[in-house]
Design a binder for these strands. Structure first.
Lengths: 109, 109
DNA sequence: TCCACACTTAAGCATTTGCCTAAGTATAAG
DNA sequence: CTTATACTTAGGCAAATGCTTAAGTGTGGA
């Protein structure tokens, strides 16, 4: 499974996106991360593991507290992939427009 | 299911991302879209339906040929969501940096 | 009219996801 | 030493995913 697979998969769940939103405001413990959600701690923990597997989040355990933080690099990879497709699409539209300007209703080549 | 759910879910699959990459280069029929993949046409068709459900792709049938095209608006929504988290995270780092400059090793408030 | 072509629908199946409860483990406070 | 805290692991289960093959439907060419 490529990293983009894991990253987009991680972002596809609303709970995990909310967790990323929380971590974008600042690092916190697993319990703090779980607090807003009406679900068991193991469920939150599993979401956290998917976020870590994707690279979107990293964490470190000190004593009995695991502190989680956002990892913007994985974020950028996903953002860049999307941006690239938009660029391709726009470049194609530009070429098409330029062509139509020279050959109105002409054959598409 | 929110639109972001469907969008990121759609982008989580490598086949669907490849389909988006193909469409970013220009519109094409379902068969053309299916051609690079070692899977049945119904399978490709199901992927296409997920891409349409997310809004990433739109299509129109003329005669017996369905032509698919990329829909950049849904793309932008996903890109914007990611970008926003990065912005939040960077703003937090900036505030932290400014604070540490005034209170080196000081209490975090 | 007949038939091939380009999808499209339906049904089935193995795997993955997203939760749960119960039962751990390790650290820190009393 | 005992207990509470903060995760962590394990097992189970219903629903969703990503395919498959088989059997349609509608269009257009011969």
């Amino acid at each position: 499974m490529s990293n983009l697979d894991l990253t987009f998969q991680a972002l596809a769940d609303p709970t995990r996106r909310a967790m990323v939103e929380r971590l974008a405001k600042g690092s916190c413990s697993v319990s703090e991360l779980a607090q807003p959600f009406a679900m068991s701690l193991p469920a939150v923990y599993q979401h956290l593991q998917m976020l870590e597997a994707s690279g979107l989040v990293a964490s470190e355990k000190i004593g009995r507290v695991r502190t989680c933080r956002m990892e913007p690099a994985a974020m950028s990879l996903a953002e860049t992939w999307i941006n690239r497709r938009r660029t391709d699409w726009e470049a194609r539209l530009d070429r098409l427009g330029a062509h139509l300007q020279r050959f109105p209703e002409g054959e598409p080549k």
